[in-house]
């Protein structure tokens, strides 16, 4: 049943039609989540007892850092699907996630730096967390570069899938770096299991923003994937039908 759905999703015209119907809903929800998260984070949440209002950078920085890992995991998973089952849609999801993944990683690094200057007293340190996150940015950029360097796009997708799978070892390193080594970056706040270490009024906007980022990711990937699909299949019957129906 699930496999059948995946195979069906793997059919380009089906994917194109379904994603086209989903996009307006995703955009609406994304907008609402961003509006609520920003209002909660910038207006309703109280200032932090130590960091004052500068802690509000958390609502940009932390979801971006989470997404940098989440998008990479999706890419590695799609990469495995593309290598084993040769599903075209998996290749397309893999390569079209790379740009937005790099954007999230870049944003996490830069806003972390902006936050670090007033609080830690430095823009950058070479501790394990920051260094492994920088490595992740290079992985994303490497994937984009490798894909554009190979002309045969099916071969390029396979090469990129292997690179994505190799790089997956960096993900647990980033996540656990703050526990395995002494770093300047502090330990996890939300994902630790004992007592909650963030006030509820501060936590709720953070979670709203995290969901907003997830929707944003879905929107960007679908937009890019649809373009990619349209161009790859430009000579196919379904694209011709699509354009004749529109009354070109």
């Amino acid at each position: 049943m699930i496999m059948r759905f995946i195979y069906q999703l793997g059919s380009p015209p089906y994917f194109y039609a379904l994603s086209g119907r989903l996009l307006p809903w995703l955009s609406g929800l994304c907008f609402i989540l961003f509006a609520a998260g920003l209002y909660g984070g910038l207006v309703l949440a109280p200032a932090d007892y130590q960091q004052g209002d500068s802690f509000r950078i958390i609502y940009i920085h932390v979801p971006a850092a989470w997404m940098s890992l989440f998008v990479y995991m999706i890419m590695a998973f799609s990469g495995a699907m593309a290598l084993i089952w040769r599903i075209k849609i998996a290749e397309i999801i893999l390569i079209n996630s790379a740009h937005i993944g790099a954007v999230f990683t870049f944003l996490a690094l830069v806003t972390g730096s902006i936050w670090g200057k007033p609080m830690w007293g430095t823009w950058w340190v070479w501790d394990a967390r920051l260094t492994s996150e920088l490595l992740l940015l290079f992985l994303y950029l490497g994937i984009i570069a490798l894909y554009s360097a190979i002309d045969d796009k099916r071969k390029a997708a396979r090469a990129v899938a292997i690179l994505a799978l190799v790089g997956v070892v960096n993900i647990p390193i980033i996540h656990y770096s703050v526990e395995w080594w002494s770093t300047l970056h502090q330990g996890p706040t939300v994902t630790k299991f004992d007592k909650p270490s963030i006030d509820t009024r501060m936590l709720i906007p953070l979670l709203l923003m995290a969901f907003a980022y997830k929707f944003l990711y879905a929107i960007v990937v679908l937009l890019r994937a649809r373009n990619d699909l349209l161009w790859r299949e430009r000579r196919s019957q379904w694209v011709a039908t699509l354009f004749s129906k529109e009354g070109a």
Partner: peptide, 11 residues
């Protein structure tokens, strides 16, 4: 932003 305007708004 409690004096952190430059940092917060640039982010």
């Amino acid at each position: 932003m409690g004096g952190y305007a430059g940092y917060v708004w640039s982010s």
